[in-house]
């Protein structure tokens, strides 16, 4: 199947040249969940931001291609790129407490862009929003549509954001650490909800997380990122059975287990880190950075 999102040799640097993403390539096909894991600062969120065009101003894309639904986004002018992204992709953000506009009611936050950007009829957009809210198990959707964000709990708000992400039937959804800001009991529900919604709508999902446990529950394939470089690309099962890259193996070994809860955590060994860093340096030298 032709990949829905295809990133080719994406290089992102700071304005003055320090590399953030080093020639990243990855593919996500329709109906597939692709995990993006790595430690803090590895650049995993930056991949999502580069696709959605929300990179911080200090960063810029040096080279590479981002193919979304058969179009290389980076060749489009800014305004058109945003419209295209708005019509075909969506984001499930990390922190539901800050991702809804506090001075607007929930309803318009879901429906307004359907009307403004995609030209839907107002009533159709409202019906759609009601259906979606019901689909994410929000009790009394009509009342919630009239509520302000501060009147709702964090879990409710994340459900609303998920519903909103699916509103325009996007082909690609990027979930950027969607459960990190929630407490553990809610995390599990939200995770299942995202997986269910993805399966039902057949969306391609890029799932950014630092949590291998989460990845094992929802993803089909994954990329392991270290210092802005993809060190391993694998199918889920194979990855957990036989990780190829030593960094992946060390990362897996560092996961706390239920079978040995009292045992101390194994950090990623320093030699492994050194090895990957040498690898990254060699890569940079080849790329002439």
């Amino acid at each position: 199947m032709k990949p829905y999102l295809s990133i080719r040799n994406l290089c992102v640097t700071l304005k003055h040249g320090a590399p953030i993403l080093r020639s990243v390539s990855l593919d996500v096909s329709a109906g597939q969940v692709h995990g993006l894991v790595g430690e803090s600062g590895a650049g995993k969120s930056m991949i999502g931001k580069a696709v959605l065009g929300t990179l911080p101003r200090a960063l810029h894309i040096r080279s590479g291609e981002i193919w979304l639904d058969g179009v290389d986004l980076l060749t489009l002018p800014l305004q058109e790129r945003r419209k295209r992204i708005g019509a075909t992709a969506a984001l499930i953000p990390q922190d539901p407490l800050t991702a809804l506009n506090p001075s607007r009611r929930i309803g318009p936050q879901i429906t307004k862009r359907l009307v403004d950007i995609l030209g839907w009829h107002k009533n159709a957009a409202e019906d759609r929003a009601l259906d979606l809210l019901a689909e994410v198990h929000i009790p009394d959707p009509a009342r919630v549509m009239r509520s302000y964000p501060h009147e709702l709990s964090g879990g409710m708000r994340q459900r609303i954001l998920i519903a909103s992400a699916f509103a325009a039937e996007p082909k690609l959804i990027i979930a950027d650490e969607p459960t990190t800001a929630l407490d553990v009991t809610v995390q599990k529900q939200i995770l299942r909800l995202i997986a269910d919604m993805q399966a039902r709508h057949g969306t391609a999902l890029l799932f950014v997380t630092h949590d291998l446990g989460v990845v094992s529950k929802v993803c089909d394939t994954l990329s392991v990122l270290y210092a802005g470089k993809v060190v391993e690309d694998a199918r889920m099962q194979r990855f957990f059975m036989r990780p190829v890259h030593p960094y992946s193996a060390a990362l897996l070994a560092a996961t706390p287990t239920y079978t040995n809860p009292t045992g101390s955590l194994k950090p990623v060994p320093a030699t492994v880190i050194e090895d990957v860093e040498t690898e990254v340096q060699q890569h940079d030298m080849r790329a002439g950075l």
Partner: peptide, 25 residues
């Protein structure tokens, strides 16, 4: 803030993002 970023991913232009999403807050 996140809701401003989210509005950008929805396809809104910078002008709309500033005057409609950011300004009221």
């Amino acid at each position: 803030l996140d809701y401003v970023t989210l509005a950008r991913t929805k396809g809104y232009g910078e002008h709309h993002v500033i005057t409609r999403e950011a300004l009221p807050n």
